[in-house]
Simulated assay, not measured.
Amino acid sequence: MFTSLQFHLAGVFLKIFLRNRQAILFSLFFPLIFIGAFSFSGASNDQFTIGVTDESQSPFSEEFIKNLEQEEIFNLIEGDFESLQSSLIQGDIKGLILIPNNFKDIDNLGALKFYVDASQTRQVSVIQRAIETSLLSVERKIRNIEPLFDLQLEDVKARPQRYIDFLLPGLLAFMIMNLSIAGSGFNIVEYRRRGILKRLFVTPIKPKDFITSIVLARMLIVLVQLSVVLSIALFLLDITIIGSYLSFYLTVILGTFIFLCIGFALGSLAKTQEGIRPIVGLVTFPQVILSGVFFPISSMPEVVQPIVYSLPLSSVVSSLREIANDGVSFMAFSTSTIGVLIWVLISFVIATRFFVWKEVAK
């Protein structure tokens, strides 16, 4: 069990952290800024503003425009071609449909032209499919043809999921990684620079007391700061954790342990603050981009997915997301949960391999 010496050292490290107000504010507000920025992203009612120039003024064109107006994803603006083309170039509208003069005779309908700036619009295929659907609807009405198939959409989710629901577990895992590596890796380098490790080395304090006290202090810091961010998200953004809070916080504790151990290893390799920054960046930055914090790993090329899933941050992100969004229990031992447990062992072995008390204190 923990000793009074370890608790005393943990209290000392907590006091050191609390004196650094800049680090406290940064670690709290950085995730909150992300959450605030993305809280209204990914809404299902986002519309594309589309310009329409009707040179035909025929019943066919009027029926076509009427069908487009019924599409929820479109916000139509009618006008002359030159002004709408200028709006398209400036980025005020996402596309421009030109209905030609000969869009009148059913036996000789002219081709519609769809102008779009593909460099500004990533959803060109979505807009094009909606336009083709409207054209098909007009054709059925003209020919008096009923659709052969009827597709009914039923949502099997217990609740609609917004992008912020997907994003929050990833940001919390990102927060865990930053706080943990900063609390072990950067602190070891700083304690070495200030001579604290050298003074501790000549005392009766054992390496396990030193490591345990840092783990206790940083674990408390992570749990408090993460709870603050999570509470703000729950009450202000109407986010619900479907799964058990016990499973959620158990994953948080294990994730913190993983990145603390990785931080100990990185802090042992680097000798100065200037030396540890690129090492930490080399380890953390690819994980932030690839580990599913901001977008699903399944959207990546299949060739790299096995490698990405094997990253420690990927396991923590996926496990937190399964618990928060799908209600999966930690004790269900899903693939993500098993990945977290495997990384607990791997990170502990890495930390004990690289963290040598005599070498670190030098």
Score class of each variant (00 low, 15 high):
206 K>V: 13
15 K>R: 15
184 S>P: 03
33 I>M: 11
333 F>N: 04
354 F>H: 07
72 E>S: 15
158 A>T: 15
42 G>I: 01
155 D>V: 11
262 I>Q: 03
163 Y>L: 02
218 R>A: 08
224 V>A: 13
290 L>C: 12
50 I>R: 00
171 L>E: 04
10 A>Y: 04
265 A>D: 00
69 E>R: 15
351 A>R: 04
271 K>S: 12
222 V>P: 01
270 A>E: 00
226 L>A: 02
184 S>W: 01
3 T>P: 03
275 G>V: 06
305 Q>E: 14
118 A>P: 01
346 I>M: 05
333 F>A: 12
154 E>Y: 13
132 E>G: 07
221 I>S: 06
135 L>N: 02
227 S>Q: 08
313 L>S: 06
188 I>A: 09
128 Q>L: 15
87 S>F: 11
159 R>V: 14
193 R>M: 07
125 S>I: 13
74 F>M: 05
108 N>L: 04
5 L>D: 07
101 N>M: 14
291 S>I: 06
166 F>T: 01
161 Q>R: 12
221 I>L: 13
345 L>Y: 04
77 I>H: 03
86 S>L: 14
148 L>P: 00
9 L>V: 11
301 P>H: 05
248 F>G: 01
136 L>P: 01
326 D>Y: 11
56 S>G: 10
49 T>M: 06
349 V>I: 15
298 S>D: 10
298 S>P: 03
309 Y>F: 10
131 I>A: 02
296 P>A: 06
107 D>Y: 11
348 F>D: 05
16 I>G: 12
139 E>S: 13
